[in-house]
Design a protein around this nucleic acid. Structure first.
Length: 261
DNA sequence: ATGACTCCCTACGGGAGA
């Protein structure tokens, strides 16, 4: 069972590319971030036509997350718990039932946090603390659980082509990296790190200054697995080729293959 | 480096992104 995450950077601008990738990659579940659309504006019919059930948590103009699944989506939960005043659409969670039992997963778009020293950075760290608290609850249930999405965190220097150029950026702050480690250290497996030791493994290349052509990338899209999900891990991958398409997103899809039957 | 690109909006310039 293939479960993928992709920050598509606007569903209106990306619908053709997303359709093409879905046909080629054929994920069982796809988690999208930055749909930049309200729920009513999401082209669900197109994806339903490809055999997917669709659930969205959108807002106008920016942010927004969506789940596509070939299996029915159950117990859909919108928004990250822990702050009722948070109106940003950055989290959606659901369950699918497989022959081996239920799998629950959260699709997340973690705040960017720039610039440092502003409420944006404290919002990022607060959001990460809420995510840690929520993951702790889910892990206590001891059922397969995944967190997938755009974490907006560069975990380690090896995860950036030019780590020195990110030292003043929210994505590479010690506090951001520590919170990410705290999340993983709850007992989750950071999948791509577990699947490959290949250098220059990135998921994002800036649109500016020829970053893609120079392979000046960073690895910020991650898939974290609970122990029960890790037991089923068959493999993972990054669909890097999508970055070379016409009108690409600046992120590429990342996926895991879990034994489901 | 207040840069560069790209996407969005009751839009034609500014916010947000990373």
């Amino acid at each position: 069972m293939k479960i993928a995450t992709w920050n598509i950077n606007g569903v209106k601008a990306r619908v053709e590319a997303v359709e093409e990738w879905l046909k080629e990659a054929s994920p069982d579940i796809a988690c999208f971030q930055e749909i930049k659309s309200v729920d009513e504006g999401f082209p669900r019919e197109i994806f339903e036509g490809l055999g997917y059930n669709v659930e969205t948590h959108g807002q106008k103009g920016f942010n927004g997350v969506a789940i596509l699944s070939k299996l029915p989506l159950e117990d859909v939960q919108r928004g990250l718990p822990g702050d009722d005043s948070d109106e940003q659409a950055r989290y959606i969670e659901a369950t699918v039932s497989t022959p081996k039992g239920a799998i629950r997963f959260g699709c997340l778009y973690l705040p960017n946090g720039n610039p440092l020293g502003t409420e944006k950075f404290s919002y990022k760290l607060g959001w990460m603390n809420r995510l840690i608290a929520h993951a702790e609850k889910r892990l206590a249930e001891e059922t397969p659980f995944l967190l997938l999405g755009d974490f907006n965190v560069i975990p380690d220097p090896v995860d950036a082509a030019k780590p020195e150029s990110w030292v003043d950026d929210a994505l590479f702050q010690p506090e951001s990296r520590q919170a990410f480690r705290a999340l993983v250290n709850l007992g989750m497996t950071e999948t791509v790190r577990a699947c490959t030791e290949a250098p220059e493994t990135y998921t994002f290349w800036d649109y500016q200054a020829g970053a893609w052509q120079k392979n000046n990338g960073i690895r910020i899209d991650h898939i974290l697995l609970s122990p029960q999900a890790t037991d089923r891990l068959n493999g993972c991958g990054i669909d890097k080729y999508v970055r070379g398409w016409e009108k690409p997103s600046d992120h590429v899809p990342v996926w895991v293959d879990l034994a489901a039957a």
